[in-house]
Simulated assay, not measured.
Amino acid sequence: MSAPTTVDPAPAAARPSVRRTAKEPRHTTPARFDTALGWSDRPGLGMALRILLCLLALAVFAAPFLTIISGAFDENARGSVLSFYPHHATLTNMRVAGDRGIWDYFTNSLVIAGGGLLLQLTVSVLAAYALARHRFRGQALVMTLFMLTMMLPEEVIAIPLSLVLGDVPVVGIDLKGTAFGVILPVGAWGFSVMLLAEFMREIPTEIEEAARIDGVGEFRMLWQIVLPLCKPALGVAGVLGFIMIWDQYLLPLIAAKDPTDYTVTVALSVLRNDPEIGSGVVLAGSVIALVPSLVVYLLLQRSLVSGIAAGATKG
């Protein structure tokens, strides 16, 4: 007669597992920085050399920026001398720059940059959607025309553009002296079209097919499905597009009829050539001109970084 079988009253989940309870040494990798320079946390000559290179790069990029800020608030500012803090702090430079109309030029720049960026993103999104999600005759020609906006330097098209702005074909309107004279020429930028088109091509066709089965139209497809998936690319296009428009110099100059139509970039050149003011006033105007670009970058830096990272890992 066989011996009775004993059953363990403890459930299987409560039984100790040898694999779980075994104490095995865990090998952990020490924290370190992975960079293009091959950063290592071990002290030595290589680490010292890399720190020196980083400090040198920081000095090259940060020194001019600090000199501009300190000179803007220094009574005896000299633009040709490096200075990291104002020796005689004052707000006179800002006041004189304001008396010279810097805030009016600043307002002109904000209107042009805001309107130009809105038009540029609208044109870029619509053009990129058509180029990426549809096929039609002459598609390569359309893309080439957008690329020409990046290939031709401003100096080449300055005179023809001035003639066109003075008498727009077909409608016969003079756009010189208006904000539209600067906004319309920057409305199409090949870089934004190319960037958004490449992102839209990566969207799986299954998503679009499923949406069309549910009766989604073209505009709703673009607004509710495609654009939310392209937020990183929109951030990159927004930051770089704003900086491109804000830094325009030749276009506002040829589109202006009166000095009151100048933007802040053109006004800085006027202030620099004025013998009655010093370098401190020009540096104060430069600080004012730097603020919008920094604000836009800080607001969209997460989208900018994620968009660049996404573009680098595609394929």
Results as ranks from 00 to 15, higher is better:
Met1Thr: 14
Ser2Lys: 12
Thr6Pro: 00
Val7His: 09
Pro11Asn: 05
Ala13Cys: 02
Arg15Glu: 05
Val18Asp: 11
Glu24Cys: 04
His27Glu: 11
His27Arg: 13
Pro30Gln: 09
Pro30Lys: 12
Phe33Asp: 08
Asp34Gly: 02
Leu37Ala: 14
Asp41Cys: 00
Leu45Lys: 14
Met47Trp: 08
Ala48Leu: 14
Leu53Arg: 06
Leu55Ala: 15
Leu56Trp: 11
Leu58Phe: 12
Phe61Leu: 10
Phe65Arg: 01
Leu66Asn: 03
Leu66Ser: 04
Leu66Val: 08
Ile68Phe: 07
Ser70Lys: 05
Phe73Val: 14
Glu75Ile: 06
Glu75Val: 05
Arg78Leu: 11
Gly79Phe: 08
Leu82Ile: 15
Thr90His: 10
Gly101Ala: 05
Gly101Phe: 10
Ile102Cys: 03
Val111Asp: 06
Ile112Arg: 03
Ala113Val: 02
Leu121Glu: 13
Ala127Trp: 05
Ala132Ser: 13
Gly138Pro: 02
Thr144Ser: 11
Glu154Asn: 09
Leu161Pro: 06
Ser162Met: 13
Val164Glu: 05
Leu165Ser: 03
Val170Trp: 15
Ala179Asp: 04
Gly181Cys: 03
Gly181His: 04
Leu184His: 00
Val186Ser: 03
Ala188Ile: 03
Ala188Asn: 02
Val193Ile: 15
Val193Ser: 07
Leu196Asp: 01
Arg201Cys: 07
Arg201Tyr: 02
Ile207Tyr: 12
Glu209Cys: 01
Glu209Phe: 04
Arg212Met: 11
Gly215His: 09
Val216Phe: 01
Val216Cys: 14
Val216Pro: 02
Glu218Gln: 12
Glu218Lys: 08
Trp223Leu: 09
Leu229Gly: 00
Ala237Pro: 00
Gly238Ser: 14
Gly238His: 01
Trp246Ser: 09
Tyr249Arg: 07
Leu251Arg: 05
Leu251Glu: 03
Pro252Arg: 08
Leu253Ser: 05
Ala255Asp: 01
Lys257Arg: 15
Thr263Glu: 00
Leu271Met: 15
Asn273Met: 08
Asp274Lys: 11
Ile277Thr: 11
Ser279Gly: 09
Gly280Cys: 06
Val282Asp: 03
Ser286Ala: 15
Ser286Phe: 04
Val287Phe: 07
Leu290Trp: 03
Val291Trp: 06
Val295Ile: 15
Tyr297Val: 09
Val305Thr: 08
